[in-house]
Computed example of a mutant assay.
Amino acid sequence: MTPTIRDARAEDEAGWRRLWQAYLTFYDHPLPEETTAFTWARLMSPDSALNMRLAVNGPDILGFAIHQHHASTWVAGDDCYLEDLFVDEAQRGGGIGRALIDDLRALARAKGWKRLYWHTGRDNARARALYDSYTPEDGHVRYRMTL
Rank of each mutant, 00 (worst) to 15 (best):
T39D: 01
T39E: 06
W40T: 04
W40Y: 15
A41T: 07
A41N: 02
R42S: 03
R42G: 07
M44C: 12
M44E: 08
S45Q: 07
S45C: 06
P46G: 08
P46Q: 13
P46S: 14
P46E: 07
D47W: 04
S48I: 10
A49T: 11
A49R: 15
A49M: 06
L50S: 12
L50V: 09
N51T: 09
N51W: 03
N51I: 00
N51D: 03
M52Q: 04
R53Y: 06
R53Q: 12
A55R: 01
A55G: 09
V56C: 15
V56P: 01
V56T: 15
V56Q: 07
V56S: 13
N57C: 10
G58T: 10
G58Q: 08
P59W: 01
P59F: 04
D60F: 00
D60K: 09
D60A: 14
D60Q: 15
I61V: 13
I61T: 11
L62E: 04
L62Q: 06
G63C: 01
F64N: 02
F64C: 03
F64Y: 11
A65R: 00
A65D: 02
A65S: 10
I66F: 04
I66S: 02
I66N: 07
H67N: 11
Q68F: 15
H69K: 05
H70W: 01
H70D: 06
A71Q: 10
S72A: 14
S72V: 07
T73Y: 05
T73N: 10
W74T: 04
W74R: 09
V75K: 04
A76N: 08
A76P: 09
G77K: 04
D78K: 08
D78T: 13
